[in-house]
């Protein structure tokens, strides 16, 4: 756990017109260890490092659920995610990442809708 972990970031426009589609990009530092590796014969075997990965990413806007992702071990290290929302009213987007070891990180970003 000594390696880089956490530091969640959200990148999205600060303002939008009502009805616009807003694209949200987010990123978190996480090893996303699969717990598996390939042996010399190319077979998948259990690795020394146990699986450690982000299992859920939940986005809400003004407290209302917007999008939830569940991830397995196949999502890349330092996972990037892009998704959208329809701009209806001003408010705060919140994203919460949770991993299989109980790690939990969150980030927020404000959107002004005119």
């Amino acid at each position: 756990m000594a390696q880089n972990i956490g530091n969640p970031m959200i990148s999205m426009p600060a303002s939008a017109k009502k009805g616009d589609l807003v694209e949200i990009h987010c990123l978190i530092m996480h090893p996303m260890a699969t717990g598996l590796h390939k042996d010399e014969q190319g077979r998948f075997v259990v690795a020394e490092a146990p699986a450690h990965f982000v299992r859920t990413v939940a986005a809400s806007f003004n407290g209302k659920p917007l999008m939830t992702a569940q991830w397995g071990i196949a999502v890349s290290t330092n996972p990037f995610l892009g998704f959208t929302m329809r701009a209806e009213q001003s408010g705060t987007l919140k994203i919460v990442w949770q991993d299989n070891w109980g790690g939990r990180w969150s980030a927020e970003s404000k959107l002004a809708v005119s």
Partner: peptide, 9 residues
């Protein structure tokens, strides 16, 4: 509210 069924990863 997603507006689009879309993701990138």
């Amino acid at each position: 509210a997603s507006g689009r069924a879309y993701f990138r990863l």
